[in-house]
Design a protein around this nucleic acid. Sequence first.
RNA 1: GGGCGAUUAGCUCAGCUGGUUAGAGCGCGUCGCUGAUAACGACGAGGUCAGUGGUUCGAGUCCACUAUCGCCCA
Length: 1122
Amino acid sequence: MSRMFDEVNANVDFPALERRVIQLWQERDVFRRSIDRPAPRGDWVFYEGPPTANGKPGIHHVIARAFKDLFPRFKTMQGYRVGRKGGWDTHGLPVEIAIEKRLGFTNKGQIDEYGIAEFNALCRADVFSNIQDWNAMTERIGFWIDLADPYVTYTNDYIESCWWIMKDLFDRGLLVEDYKTTWHSPSSNTTLASHEVSLGYQEDVEDPSIYPKFPAVRGDLAERGVIDAGETRPVSFLAWTTTPWTLAANSGLAVRADAAYALVAAPARRRESAGERELYLLANELVARVFEPGTYEVLTTVPGATLAGTTYRPLLVGRPGDGADLASAYRVVADDFVSLTDGTGIVHVAPAYGDLEVGRSHGLPAVFSVDLTGKVLPEVRLAQPAGAADPAGAAANGPYAGAWFKDADSAITADLDAAGRMFDSGTVRHAYPFNWRDGKPLMNVAKRSWYIRTTAVKELLLANNDRIGWHPDHVRTGRFGKWLENNIDWALSRERYWGAPLPIWETEDGGKKLCVGSVAELERLTGRDLKDLDLHRPYVDEITFELNGETYRRVPYTVDVWFESGAMPYAQWHYLGDASGLEVKERLAANFPADYICEAVDQTRGWFYSLHALATLMTDPGDAASGRRPGPLAHLSRPTSAFRNVNVLGHIVDENGEKMSKSKGNTVDPWSVLDAQGADALRWYLYSASPPEATKRFSASLVDETLRDFLLTLWNVYGFFVLYANLEEPDVASAPPHAERPLVDRWLVSRLNAVVAGVTAALEGFDPPTASRLGRDFVVDEVSNWYVRRNRRRFWRSGQVQGESGARVLDPDSLSAYATLHEVLVTVAKLMAPMAPFTSEALYQNLVLSLDPAAPDSVHLTDWPKADTAAIDEDLMRDMRALMRLVELGRAARAASGVKLRQPLPEVLVRVRSEEELAGVRSLSDQLLDELNVKAVRFLAVTDGFVDYALKPNLPRLGKRVGKLIPQLRAALEGMDGRAVAANVRAGVPTTVTLADTTLELEPEDLLLDARSPEGYAAQEERGYLVALDTRVSDALRREGLVRDVVRLVQNGRKAAGLDVSDRIVLSVRAEGELAEAVREHGAALAREVLAVSLDDAPTPGSFQESHEVDGAALTFAIRKA
RNA sequence: GGGCGAUUAGCUCAGCUGGUUAGAGCGCGUCGCUGAUAACGACGAGGUCAGUGGUUCGAGUCCACUAUCGCCCA
């Protein structure tokens, strides 16, 4: 017999079902067709943030991809075309480090020895080592993205686009070379990337803590009135540092202009109390912390601004940097960075070792004391007093020459102490970074570096940020906004190997520099055919050319990988500006900027920033006042970020809240979840568990809960529908129109449309938790636990009638139920499609395509449901809510009364909160009777004298008006006659309340009436609702209740006998006493309930037989399939 | 050390612009119901809404500080 629908297996295996759906998508080419289908609303642009495929994908990659898939599917159904080009991040340090580890390298020099070409070849081979896993995971979770034609950052085309951008920036003066402070590892002579530095931070490192005395030039101070002109005692600026080795690099001292500085008289060393006193300058508020109590005297205080510009003599000398002019050194400067929380309020400034910005802004020269391998330079020695000859001779090596910089600390300290230049020395424990590979200390060093001058467009960065739809919103002004406000130039160059080379060529002396923007340009410069040139190092390093008689060589740098990922809007199409083909230009125009991106929160200063900064630079309209030229995309777009909306995702942690890491062994293999619970359960859990930005604790048991709570409930409703539809074969198309269906159907349709509106709004607001929870609550609470439970009888044995043609035709009531539930299931399938693409596809295939082969052959090719606002009946939904509330109270009342639900009761008294609700609930009262198994309902008027009332103020209305009198008013209302006030409320007249000092006129809506239970009923009340059951059971009702017991036992018997739900039976029942009477009286109803074609009290031979005791009476029945 | 965010029941989370008795699901206990259900219903145990102070007639909600956790930066 051919069924209307494919049978639905109640023991559904979701992972297996999902694999079949994947196959169906492949066979029907659904993904491609979803992009090719007509897009009346135009393009909606999604950018894939490229992952790296050199590691196995973990559960945290699934979450990002689950979100990345949701919105493109949603927008596609809404009528947009959403192209989804995949991408892979292939360059960068993680790859290099993996290869270095494999080769056992501990420092960068070993790479040069090994050979850059060989090294990079290994990197290239490694980056896709896990791409099979990635592609399999991507497909299995249903992430639709074009993996056949992804952008790959290591390709020549991609690199060339990066070059084009850099050349544009260079030509506009926005790509410049300058000194930069870096964390340098002298042990491996390498600059470390910031994340490498953070890997190596150690807490509680013991370092020197010294207070050197810088001899002030007394004349300068006397001139400003800080000391007397005749002062002869030594005057020192007292500084504090933890790096004695940088003292030879000192070229300035910094004070805070707005802080008070004290001139203190004290002994020459901290621990001395006697002896000749010297004079010190330091921040006034730190004096008591630096000097021992009772050993010092504050002579005067002056503002820091007064000290600025005075000079002092150096303690040690070092090697001046290129072009450094020592004439400008050894000055006191004022700067806000100076902190007064520790030290002395006078900061020793060594521009070459960490204080580059300060030095630069005050014109202090860079002086070096240590080379890049951590060896102290030969020039370093104690400074000699003016006019004194160096005993060892200036040409000879200094006493610390060649020493490891940290080893020189103690010698320098001792020598300064001996020279009387040390006020105190000790140690301090603090956090300090070490090379994470060899454990050796790092040092802050200024190096030449290339920068993108993002500070030139800072205002534009902020303005463009204001227009981004951040989700959550606080990132705009918080994490990201703060970052932009403190914007510093983007340090672009890296001394690395496996990355896009910086395309700058310079002359031997570095005097002339040229940025190359394309391979074609390089061919013109060299006169060579470079079509087959690998743009990576070392090959590109070998390309040199002559220009105006000078040889140009490429600088040795690669660029920050964030630059590469930030360039993807342009580089994914191999965009080269005006040199691009027409097709590429059109592609770029259609796909810029993105409507949506989605990544985890750690990308704020990573991809989010690099995308934003480059797009801002590219679309910069220019600034005539400062002579800034417009960017190359200014003609295409107003100033903009690269993205309009972004979901910022939180991280996934394990079930104990701990970060997942391979070393802890607490990572979750996505496949373990995908194979057990399936992709939809996982996706739904990820969407609904918590706000996207929240840190999520992941546990498989929560995914399991999602599966049982939501997906299985939906599946059961679906299975229920199909099971009975296949028996009854309803023609849902011929069902009565909505308006003519029973109230409960109209209610469900109303709710459905409200849910459509709600889910649509939530997804348009990039809010998956709200969308998924609306769907879940609707399906579980309203469709399954209310509608289907309340209406299941309408779906089975529904009294088929013969149609005029002799065909079987369902009565309109059943047909309405089928049509309503069918519509709900189909619409829910569409609403769920972006979030649970597999289950929704399965439902759609069976529920829609079985009936209408002409329909789109995938749910993902259908249009997003539109909410029919005309079908949303707010009053009806409010009334049903009230009814559900009453049923809840009625059940509680029954439970309290001890009368079981099978026993019918004669009457229930009901009171609701308003006249409108009363009318509404009255129209739904048959639901109430059925649900509570009661014969009649009596509605009490809202102000019926049958009940008394507690009076309460309606606070949202009265709070502002009455204010402080609220407690008085409460007390007064409690003392008033509830019935009398209720009568006022009913009549719509104000009530006068007398308080101590005043009287208040309260309008009816200012008061809340809480009904109190009537005496002698099993009653439950809550917030104005009241349900009271009359629990007197008549004999007739008792017999009815007994028969319901018999029905239940026979039904159980049917099940035990292995009968099908639609099988008809021959039934015999033998009972005694009142039970026999009850069976006789309600025999017809009994037979109808259990599908008995005949009912007698004779034994039925060869049949299933059972004996029971019902309410003390014996019962035996036998059933046989008819 | 700085910035941003979080902290509500054993677990996962709601709680809108301050307002009546702080909720849901899971888990636990008792009882009930059951021909779609791997279910469902009622009742119960479980909360000083991280802490302290403030604003207010009224604070889970607003403000300040503190603690703990996470991320980013140093």
